[in-house]
Design a protein around this nucleic acid. Sequence first.
DNA 1: CAAAACTGGAGAGTAGTACTATCCAAGGAA
DNA 2: TTCCTTGGATAGTACTACTCTCCAGTTTTG
Lengths: 219, 219
Amino acid sequence: MLISELSERADVSIATIKYYIREGLLPKGTSTSPTRAEYGEQHLQRLRLIRALVDVGALPLAGVRAILNAVDDDSVNLHYLLGTAAYALEPRPERPVGDPEWDRAERTTDELLAEFGWKVTEHAPARLKLTRTLATLDRLGWHIDPGLLRAYADSAARIVRHEFGTVDFDRPRAEVVEYAVAMTVLMENAMTALHRLAQEDMSGRVLDTAGQAPDAPHV
Amino acid sequence: MLISELSERADVSIATIKYYIREGLLPKGTSTSPTRAEYGEQHLQRLRLIRALVDVGALPLAGVRAILNAVDDDSVNLHYLLGTAAYALEPRPERPVGDPEWDRAERTTDELLAEFGWKVTEHAPARLKLTRTLATLDRLGWHIDPGLLRAYADSAARIVRHEFGTVDFDRPRAEVVEYAVAMTVLMENAMTALHRLAQEDMSGRVLDTAGQAPDAPHV
DNA sequence: CAAAACTGGAGAGTAGTACTATCCAAGGAA
DNA sequence: TTCCTTGGATAGTACTACTCTCCAGTTTTG
């Protein structure tokens, strides 16, 4: 197909497709004449994946590029690829030194990981993210209930067992790899959405709502 | 305290503090002379909350402003405030018409909400977010296992019960309100971080990792 | 008491991200 | 043959979140 058809089928403007090609997110079409190039189904699928990661996953293009490079590199195994996705999802926060809140948060994180027997690398972005969140809450004067944290971790473990149960590792690598990336990025969205829905339901049950509708934003 | 002390204690540059005041995120200090103004502890706390929402919660400043306006408005009850926070967290996605994937996803969302008995408004951003995520996965050719979705929802319900258990509704309103906002925004971070940590652990157990370390980004 | 440093306030300038628009000459379709 | 589309390149735009510079008045310091 020509670029115009690709543009229409993926619902992405030609200018944007050209931009993605320039930026190395999408491979070039195969030239058939000096002013014509042919695009295939794989271009369409890739374009849809990019849009999904950008629109739904809210990833910066640099992150998308990092993930796609790893996806395309056959020497990268799946565990490592998931790691790459995790890195792309989060800019690496640097660890402040001599910060009492950070040190306390780090201890809490380490204890939790030990308690659940989770083996993750020292520099896993998610580990730093958790630590930073706990340190920030501490700095704001709120100390998180350890039981709540354990409930989160317990839920995470349960969910991940479910997720891995749905992966068919016998399918072609490219397919498994794209599925894994979509799982990591998109289902995280679904999870936070469900969290907020449960919160809205619970807050409606617990709190007085008489006279105020919660369906109009207060901006 | 003067602006320089506020800047130092909150670890935010004077220029940025001035910018926040201009943008209406932070109230002015009380002027003591034409070139001097006094800032109090509440300025410091507010500044820390802004930084937490921006840095850890990755909220845009417009979203932070919307939340803070609702926090400061005593006529806004807690249920409504949580709704405001939810709106600030997500730009309202518009609903495409005549899109088969979207319609299927919407049906899945509605069924799930009905099954769990969650009462949420029609236009809840989280509801649209979930629908959009499911529609996107559908468009990419992956159909989510209903059991997995139910596992997510189940975890969300369990977590929210825990969260509401830790809130002391008898404390002063300002305190409860800030706690609720922090809960919504920051603990979501903690949740996704734990999800990724559980994923890394599981992927290390299930997949071959020989010869490759997952702790260096593939960029 | 004079020089240096700091203050609040205002406006302009900057860096990064993600496009979007314009131009061009060569090909193809009506 | 006339018009439209194409690939390729370059420049421009919109938005966000600061950051810088300037100013005149005010403290602080030597």
